[in-house]
Computed example of a mutant assay.
Amino acid sequence: MHIFVGFPAGSSPDTIARLVAEPLAKALGQPVVVENRPGAGGVIAVQQMLARGSAGDSFGININGPLTTAQRLIPDLGYDPVTDIAPVGLIATSPLVLAVAAEFPADDLAAFIDAARAEPEAISYGSVGEGSGAHLTAELFADAAGVELFHIPFQSYAEVTTSILGGEIDSGFMAPSAALPQVEAGTMKMLGVTSAEPFAQVPDVPVMAGQAGLPEDFRAELWNAFIAPAGTDPAILDRLNTELNQILKDDEVRERLLAMGWQAQAGTPGDLAQRIGEDTALWGGVIDATQAAD
């Protein structure tokens, strides 16, 4: 059994895949090989998985992008996430946090929004690239808050963090785990988290939903999921979903996920299909608005 991962060894999706693969191999009584096929934000791994067909030995663990936004961002994607991919189940979700330097004059979300409204595009934010989850989340936030922020793309959260600390940019929407070391050191602060509920890794950071005029249903999450090619035997998909959910109940697995900034998220294939549909619509709207503004 092969699990294709769209990012290099040591990356968050790779670590999650290997965390799942070991107990899965024991449960199934067969080898589970994690194959890294990085490129195009995870898309190459999906294409590789689909190229092997639906014989029941080709699967993927990947982030949300290739299943929700890639069709809008990559014209020659070569697959349809709805018709060509069979959901197995969600694995874990992660929100983003709005992080600023410790000396930034706003100490809460309302003050940040007020400052942004006072001077459109005067406040800058960094993301990990055009079309990334961080970029789209910031644009979703800006639209919901009625503000205009200035976007500066980077290659990594490390670069975003360095630029915030160096005063080159004002803020960043980033993974809690990326900002947490600087927050603990007293050099950065988090003004809000994009999950619907408080996030266990940063329980004291207030959720953005319902704050400072934002909608009560405001939510933006990244996620990792287990997928298969469409046409894979439903009995195989059911078995994998059952074993996956059992793995995600394990306290050690849950703790290791949380330490990396991810919340274990068990569920059915239908739950994943629903999340793909909802997020495709959500982020598609953000992409359309961003492209229209450009």
Rank of each mutant, 00 (worst) to 15 (best):
P176Y: 09
I287M: 08
D108A: 07
E119P: 04
A92V: 03
G166R: 06
A45G: 01
H135F: 11
A122Q: 13
Y125Q: 00
G53F: 04
E35K: 11
D271E: 06
R37E: 15
P105H: 06
L19E: 02
D80P: 02
P269C: 03
E139S: 08
T161E: 15
P81S: 09
Q155I: 10
I91F: 08
D279G: 00
I164G: 15
E148M: 13
E121H: 12
A111K: 09
N245G: 12
Q246I: 13
P66D: 09
G166P: 08
T83C: 00
A230L: 02
G6E: 11
A273D: 12
I247F: 07
P234E: 00
Q155W: 12
L214Q: 02
A220T: 09
V46N: 05
Y79P: 01
A259K: 08
A289H: 05
V147Q: 04
A228N: 09
E252D: 15
E130L: 14
A145V: 11
S58P: 08
V207K: 05
V128S: 12
A235K: 14
L24Y: 03
A281F: 07
V205A: 03
V46Y: 07
V160C: 10
G166E: 11
M188K: 00
E168I: 11
L96R: 04
G270K: 00
R117W: 04
G133K: 05
A70W: 06
V32D: 12
S94Q: 10
A99C: 05
A266R: 14
D279W: 00
G56R: 03
L19I: 01
N64T: 10
R275E: 12
L90I: 13
S54A: 15
V20P: 06
V33C: 14
R37H: 14
A264P: 02
P75V: 05
A200T: 07
F199L: 01
K249S: 09
A9V: 11
L149R: 08
I3M: 06
Q71L: 11
P81K: 02
V97Y: 07
G270T: 02
T194S: 15
L98C: 02
Q263T: 15
V128E: 09
N224C: 12
W283V: 00
E159R: 02
F173W: 04
P176H: 06
F199M: 00
G166A: 12
G126L: 07
G261V: 00
V286W: 03
P66L: 07
I74M: 09
I236L: 13
R52G: 12
A116C: 03
V33N: 15
N245P: 06
A259W: 03
I3P: 03
A185S: 13
G277S: 00
D57N: 14
F218E: 06
A175S: 09
Q48C: 05
T137K: 10
I61H: 04
L19M: 10
S132Y: 10
T93S: 08
T15V: 13
